[in-house]
């Protein structure tokens, strides 16, 4: 990812020169063994239970004391069943979508935090799909609570969950066009009027970034 410029809004007559800055931002990359704390056990158990481990897992990130498994979307349901049944991650705490427009080919991510009540462990699954082909298999059969979460992620980001019983909009009105939480969707506010002046909404204002 890279960040361009030092000010929030663009095209506002900024002559400082800071608008041309391009700062690259590094996200934490894949980690090497040993992972630390219970993450090694989880990885070992998963490898033992799931022979196609190397195909399915695209990367393992240990960052800030948390384990993230980047999973291939074709193998997602299989890995989910194994995590639930063999590794005892009984509860899935929802789906969170993130839109990274800079990562061409992997723009939309769906993040599933998992919780194991028996072992008191937390891990995270992350699936990345491209913008034009935003299909992810649905995990409603594995954890029924993901029903509304997947609907929300579809509503907000446009990720289509194949196999979902009723994938419709849940938070926006049923006939809304567009997916609001994508980065290319405007915030949609209106200018605030004062006497003789107008303050634009936060996505159009000049502000320090």
């Amino acid at each position: 990812m890279s960040e361009k410029g030092a000010f929030g809004a663009h095209g506002t007559g900024d002559t400082s020169g800071y608008g041309g800055l391009v700062k690259s931002k590094a996200t934490p990359g894949s980690s090497e063994r040993p992972y630390g704390s219970y993450f090694d056990d989880v990885a070992d158990n998963l490898e033992r239970a799931y022979p196609d481990f190397a195909d399915a897992i695209e990367g393992v990130v240990i960052d800030r004391g948390e384990l993230t498994l980047h999973i291939n979307r074709e193998k997602l349901v299989e890995v989910a069943f194994i995590l639930r049944d063999k590794l005892k991650f009984e509860m899935c705490l929802g789906v969170s979508g993130v839109h990274y427009p800079d990562q061409i080919g992997r723009e939309l991510h769906a993040v599933y935090p998992l919780l194991s009540i028996t072992n008191n462990q937390r891990i995270r699954l992350e699936v990345s799909v491209a913008d034009g082909d935003a299909h992810i298999p649905s995990l409603v059969e594995v954890w029924a609570g993901n029903n509304w979460h997947e609907r929300e992620t579809f509503d907000m980001f446009g990720i289509i969950f194949d196999g979902h019983p009723a994938l419709t909009r849940i938070l926006m009105p049923d006939d809304w066009q567009g997916h609001p939480q994508r980065k290319d969707y405007p915030l949609g506010g209106i200018d605030v009027e004062y006497k003789g002046a107008v303050i634009p909404p936060p996505d159009n204002r000049r502000s320090y970034k």
């Binding site: 609001p180 969707y185 405007p186 915030l187 949609g188 506010g189 209106i190 605030v192 909404p201 936060p202």
Partner: peptide, 12 residues
């Protein structure tokens, strides 16, 4: 007036 939520979802 829409309050602090000047966005797509709230009637201003």
């Amino acid at each position: 007036s829409g309050g602090m939520f000047n966005n797509y979802a709230i009637v201003q």
